[in-house]
Design a protein around this nucleic acid. Structure first.
Lengths: 157, 157
DNA sequence: TGTAATGCTTGCTATACCGCAACTATTGCT
DNA sequence: AGCAATAGTTGCGGTATAGCAAGCATTACA
């Protein structure tokens, strides 16, 4: 048990270290947004892109913010042409919010920047170990995928 | 070359996936702060904890914000007893900012929460693969460590 | 010693974010 | 038709972040 415990601690510790590096990458990729888009706005974009067009209320719930707050977030995103508001066809009182192509481009730019930084790191790793890394990360990703995952909710991905 | 390219893409893609999971963990761990501490404030705390006590100007530079902004950030952190300001002994015009024990406790709580979530994921991985994961993550962490690393600057760690 | 540079703070203004309450428009139900 | 529930918006007040300019000490230097 103590051996397993130590092994577990070793894995956790390494994952924590890895986490620091990857979160740093993510943070920097967001900073490429400049002052154009704030973090809450980016989170909203991610949600809308992941879940597809939906109402302001649903967005508010996903972001855990007050509906009125979501309205104004949408105001700002719409002003930047990153989303579009359309009155729903089903209910005239519902407003459907959708990411525009410009919004998608912004999200793609963030991902691209992130991949680019990761690529630089990967190239520093001995090529001979890539297979092992792929295997290990696959195992981890599987496990993380099974874990209750609200990550995308937070829009920090 | 095309094979290496594919292999590289595979690694990058997996790291991206892993990144999403880990960033989600990090984001959730920050949300344990409640509304007590904002993200900029947390970033400041991380910097101070990592670099040790230092002047307001150095903190501002590390956070890439205006010194006046750093002053007010320190105001808020000090009001919450998370940092302390002392006039430097060397220069009476310099103010040294240091994390208090309460501040360290807050940081520890975040890390603890993060480790706890990671532990849950680790336990979902087959024990037999832990050694491989440790090896692979070690390789990755090394590579990430060699890469120009401003991650801690951003205080999202 | 007098002047310039440094380190930090304060006044100012602007934006973003946040929740609550009140309001409008629409839909659903009786 | 009338009333209640729903979806979204707007008004309001509050805090946080952010930069610029001005000011105050203090230090460094000429």
């Amino acid at each position: 048990m103590s051996i397993d415990k130590n092994a577990e601690d070793a894995v956790v510790s390494l994952v924590l270290t890895t986490s620091r590096a990857l979160v740093g990458v993510a943070a920097r990729s967001l900073s490429t947004l400049g002052d154009d888009v704030t973090l809450p706005q980016y989170r909203g974009l991610v949600i809308l892109a992941a879940r597809g067009p939906q109402g302001v209320g649903a967005l508010a719930q996903a972001l855990s913010i007050h509906p009125s707050n979501a309205t104004r977030l949408c105001d700002r995103l719409a002003r930047k042409q990153l989303i579009e508001r359309h009155v729903s066809q089903e209910s005239r009182r519902e407003v459907t919010v959708a990411v525009t192509s410009a919004g998608r481009q912004l999200l793609a730019a963030v991902t691209k920047q992130r991949a680019s930084e990761i690529r630089a790191i990967v190239r520093l790793m001995p090529v001979g170990q890539w297979p092992q890394v792929v295997g290990a990360l696959g195992v981890f990703a599987d496990a993380a995928g099974e874990a209750p995952d609200d990550a995308w909710k937070l829009g920090w991905t």
